[in-house]
């Protein structure tokens, strides 16, 4: 956690630096819309709410018993280049966002690929039927590039692509109240009941890079302040391609919302 806070702090410094560059660029265009500049910078703070999920949910997952999206803070900065100098204009926006994506989920599964791994490489692989509890706490450095369109004076919508780099990772959990068929559905059967549970940790199997789309919008609430919401969806599996234990692809689906401070 200390590492994450340090990263947030460094990003904050970076954004403050951006702002000071911006301050030196003050220009007036054609004597009109004096507050409207071609380059506009924003500093954003918000939360991510969502989860990592297979899409669609595969038949092995029988029931979602509990889900907590967690409060995942993020901080971001972006720069928008406006092509025209009017209130209904197109722009292109590039940003940098330091974000946490986490969740905790409890589900009931049937015949679900599982591998329980210990520190010493000791492993038990097989097909699990029963409860699975999953905790995810990842942090990413993300780079969204979006097209922005002004619908009206206060409203803006945007859509584009996002590339993320995984910095801190944790994808782990435990299985309980069920049974493992070792090696596959016809393997030896071992029942876990009551207090018996076994943990797993797939953190090292997470893929470093992910890419996807982001769509969203924002609304001006005060002269320098906007509220925003962006939905992002990762196209590629969050696990490395050689990871075969979980037999389906999992995608991050997150709604990022919060406040944006606009430097103008």
């Amino acid at each position: 956690m200390i590492k994450k806070h340090k990263n947030l702090f460094l990003l904050g410094l970076f954004l403050i630096g951006l702002n000071s560059i911006n301050a030196q660029e003050e220009t007036t265009i054609n004597g009109l819309e004096t507050t409207q500049k071609k380059m506009v910078y924003q500093l954003r703070a918000g939360v991510n709410i969502g989860g990592f999920s297979p899409v669609p949910i595969p038949e092995e997952i029988r029931e979602i018993e509990g889900f907590n999206p967690k409060l995942n803070f993020n901080i971001a900065g972006n720069a928008t280049y406006w092509f025209f100098n009017s209130n209904a204009a197109w722009g292109i926006r590039a940003g940098i966002r330091l974000e946490n994506k986490g969740m905790s989920a409890k589900s009931k599964v049937k015949n679900y690929g599982m591998e329980i791994i210990g520190d010493d490489g000791n492993r038990v692989a097989g097909n699990w039927t029963g409860r699975v509890s999953t905790e995810v706490a990842n942090s990413y450095l993300s780079f969204p590039i979006t097209a922005v369109y002004k619908l009206s004076k206060p409203w803006e919508i945007s859509a584009g692509f996002i590339v993320s780099y995984l910095m801190d990772k944790d994808f782990s959990g435990y299985v309980s109240d069920g049974y493992l068929r070792e090696g596959g559905p016809t393997g030896e059967k071992a029942i876990f009941e009551g207090e018996s549970k076994a943990s797993y940790d797939f953190s090292d199997n997470l893929s470093r890079f992910s890419y996807g789309i982001q769509v969203g919008g924002s609304l001006q609430v005060y002269s320098h302040l906007r509220v925003f919401a962006d939905l992002s969806y990762g196209f590629n599996d969050i696990f490395k391609s050689d990871f075969e234990t979980i037999t389906f692809k999992m995608h991050p689906i997150y709604l990022n919302f919060g406040f944006a401070y606009v430097f103008k």
Partner: peptide
């Protein structure tokens, strides 16, 4: 996105 993620019918037994 939630709609496409709904729970499917139970798979046939693999054991």
């Amino acid at each position: 996105s939630v709609f496409v993620s709904c729970i499917k019918s139970e798979p046939a037994n693999a054991e």
